Simulated assay, not measured.
Amino acid sequence: MTARTRPQHVAVLALDGAYPFELGIPSRIFEAVPGLYEVSTCSVDGQPVRSASDFTIGVEHGPELLETADTVVISSIATPAIPVELPEDVAAALERIPSRSRIVSICTGAFVLAAAGMLDERRATTHWQLTELFRRRFPHVELDPGVLFVEDGPVLTSAGAASGVDACLHVVRTDHGSAVANSVARCCVVPPFRDGGQAQYIERPLPERGSNGTAHARDWAVAHLHDRVDLSTLARVAGMSPRTFSRRFTAEVGVSPGKWLVGQRVARAQRLLESSDLPVDRVAEEVGFATGASLRQHFHAAMGVTPTAYRQTFHGSA
């Protein structure tokens, strides 16, 4: 864990029409390991908010809470509550957020940020069912409906419901490393990292009777990353032609086999960089990259830092 003089303050803004499940995600994830974060919830006026269910939610803080937040989470709201124009009290509350703060939205919370102009010219995502509505309203936002979450500068937007868990775990992973994020995930009995994006949840025709999926091949690949697995090998394990396997894999996971493999190797490299003293070139061998240069290239593309810089930040910190 990186050294901190105090826990990071996370402020959750509850809006009318909030989904109770998503509203509770930040406190459940961020407070799973004591001492790292303090989570508080506020409303735009300090009054209870109407939830998307048949009850109201009481909060103890008004919008002034946002002024001291290191991270602000805008929770999701039911579709009928999505504003065409941002209400004045919501706009005033958002203006209280310090420029230094990280901002996270869950699902339809992206509509609130976009209406406030906070997503202009940024990459963002929201629930796949609302893609067309979002694009019509906010053409200046670079919407990516195929991902579970996307981070652009200090703003992180996530897709539907449980993607808020993925986004919050990403924040923990960024702040404190994979070991801490994995510990939080185990505590909450959720996967520390979900493969693919929203594509795997979009409604599609059921596979033909008797057809086989790619899960077995994925499990096999994770156990054999050091063997430099490729598409032909995975297809052979699955008992399919490479073309059929690639098509079914992408339909199930939401990314191509090659992109998925790179992600798995980078994730394994993270763990080795955090927990071992192996040279970077040796880490590359262990995770299946042909050379240390290949690891450096893919790692930097995925994480924004070099393997060496990542190790300096997180090695032995958990």
Rank of each mutant, 00 (worst) to 15 (best):
residue 44 V to Q: 04
residue 46 G to Q: 06
residue 47 Q to Y: 02
residue 48 P to T: 01
residue 48 P to M: 00
residue 50 R to E: 08
residue 50 R to W: 01
residue 53 S to D: 11
residue 56 T to M: 05
residue 62 G to F: 02
residue 62 G to K: 02
residue 65 L to A: 08
residue 67 E to Q: 15
residue 67 E to H: 07
residue 69 A to Y: 09
residue 70 D to T: 06
residue 70 D to I: 07
residue 72 V to R: 08
residue 72 V to F: 13
residue 77 I to A: 11
residue 77 I to Q: 09
residue 77 I to C: 10
residue 79 T to G: 03
residue 79 T to F: 07
residue 80 P to T: 08
residue 82 I to F: 11
residue 83 P to W: 03
residue 84 V to P: 01
residue 84 V to I: 07
residue 85 E to D: 15
residue 85 E to P: 14
residue 86 L to K: 06
residue 87 P to Q: 01
residue 88 E to K: 07
residue 89 D to I: 00
residue 91 A to P: 04
residue 92 A to D: 13
residue 92 A to T: 10
residue 92 A to W: 02
residue 94 L to P: 13
residue 94 L to F: 10
residue 94 L to E: 08
residue 95 E to P: 02
residue 96 R to Q: 04
residue 98 P to N: 03
residue 99 S to T: 15
residue 99 S to R: 15
residue 102 R to G: 09
residue 104 V to L: 14
residue 106 I to P: 14
residue 107 C to L: 05
residue 107 C to T: 04
residue 108 T to P: 00
residue 108 T to M: 00
residue 109 G to M: 05
residue 109 G to H: 05
residue 111 F to V: 11
residue 115 A to S: 15
residue 116 A to W: 07
residue 117 G to L: 06
residue 119 L to Q: 01
residue 121 E to G: 04
residue 122 R to Q: 01
residue 123 R to D: 06
residue 129 Q to R: 15
residue 129 Q to A: 14
